[in-house]
Design a protein around this nucleic acid. Structure first.
Length: 362
DNA sequence: CGACGTGTAAC
DNA sequence: CCTTTTACACGTCG
């Protein structure tokens, strides 16, 4: 059965929302920043609008770089306002839900929709759904988006990336091979820098190179599982359903005001972060079994220490455990200093109800 | 097999 | 001089 899957990607979402909130900045280069707080301009660019991207200011670069590029140009720098973006995102996802049999939100500004069983649908008609979605988002929120349509999530995602902003691209099952054929492997969703390098070392440059490569040789390098997934991706095959994944973990990470190995200072930061996690645990109504610290050292290398405990929904009662994990990390890494610190709960379970007195008598 | 730590990837 | 959050896979260990 051929499915019809849409991928909807809101165009430079944060920057667009800021332009709507303040028409003064509309048409100018807009850069949304995550300030880390260690110095006035430390931090990274989260998103920028297309005007800013033309200047070379794009997601991920240090704010200080961006400001250097923006020197003696009129560029608007704004801090992220996640609460504002989250509310807009929620409203838009509700609009999308009306148009699909199944929806899977993959990030604050992206979602997959399965429209296979929508009335009157076929490849041509699917475009009409996409156009309707684009109009609705424009009408209700004043935003544009890029939509991709394909026989599965992978192809829909690649399609939405083909033309943006404000694009609409259909890749039918018959067109998949043609679209992937000469594509560099680095352009395939899910193949990042490391994998690209490994593939290139084997002489694999394009999707078709990868699709036709000897599977045994691939398995020796990547292992059975990943080798198979890589070749499927290269052929545009993806059987994964459009469905909302159960939440698996909740984490918060923060930057320390200076590199340090002082447990007291770091633990204070952990307490701050855990407050946020506790809020989300309550909101999602889950218990957890595993608690971890995430430590990022001065070389930006990530480490973690974790412990699995009795099912609970209370961070506070386990902060001493967290402190011990921190202690353990420094015992095992004497002299190492940290730049950032995080806390994570995982092994999430459906909430176990508090036992009432009645439960003891039943 | 479950727990733990790391690496890769995407946003 | 470099953010944040999540998912998943793999190796290792007991």
């Amino acid at each position: 059965m051929t499915r019809i899957v849409l991928h909807v990607d809101l165009d430079s979402f944060y920057a667009s929302l800021e332009e709507i909130r303040n028409i003064e900045i509309k048409g100018k280069p807009v850069v949304i920043c995550v300030y880390s707080g260690r110095s006035p301009d430390s931090g990274a660019v989260s998103t920028s609008n297309y005007k800013a991207r033309e200047l070379g200011i794009k997601a991920g670069i240090p704010i200080s770089f961006a400001k250097r590029i923006a020197k003696d140009k009129e560029v608007v720098f704004l801090p992220v306002d996640m609460e504002h973006y989250r509310l807009a995102s929620d409203r838009i996802m509700e609009l999308l839900e009306e148009e699909a049999d199944a929806i899977e939100q993959v990030s604050i500004d992206e979602a997959y929709l399965d429209v296979t069983n929508r009335p009157f649908e076929n490849w041509i008609e699917a475009q009409k759904i996409a156009e309707k979605i684009k109009e609705k988002i424009k009408h209700h929120e004043g935003l544009t988006c890029s939509v991709g349509i394909g026989p599965n999530k992978l192809v829909a995602k690649m399609a939405s990336g083909h033309k943006k902003p404000n694009g609409l691209t259909v890749i039918t099952d018959a067109e998949v091979i043609g679209f992937f054929d000469k594509l560099p492997v680095s352009k395939i969703h899910g193949i990042g820098d490391r994998t690209t390098k490994s593939l290139n070392d084997l002489g694999i440059q394009t999707a078709s190179d990868l699709a036709n490569y000897n599977i045994d040789a691939l398995e020796r390098i990547f292992g059975k599982n990943k080798a198979k997934i890589l070749q499927e991706k290269a052929k545009g095959i993806d059987e994964s359903p459009v469905e909302q994944d159960e939440i698996q973990q909740i984490s918060r990470i923060g930057t320390l005001s200076e590199d340090t190995d002082n447990i007291e200072i770091i633990f204070e930061k952990i307490k701050e972060l855990s407050f946020d996690i506790q809020k989300k645990i309550k909101k999602k109504v889950v218990d957890f079994r595993t608690i971890s610290i995430i430590a990022i050292d001065t070389e930006l290398k990530t480490h973690s220490r974790s412990e699995t405990l009795q099912q609970t929904d209370l961070i506070d009662e386990n902060l001493i455990k967290v402190r011990n994990l921190l202690q353990k990390f420094f015992e095992e890494n004497p002299g190492k200093k940290l730049r950032r610190i995080g806390i994570k709960v995982s092994n999430l379970l459906e909430k176990k109800k508090q036992k009432t007195l009645g439960d003891f008598y039943s």
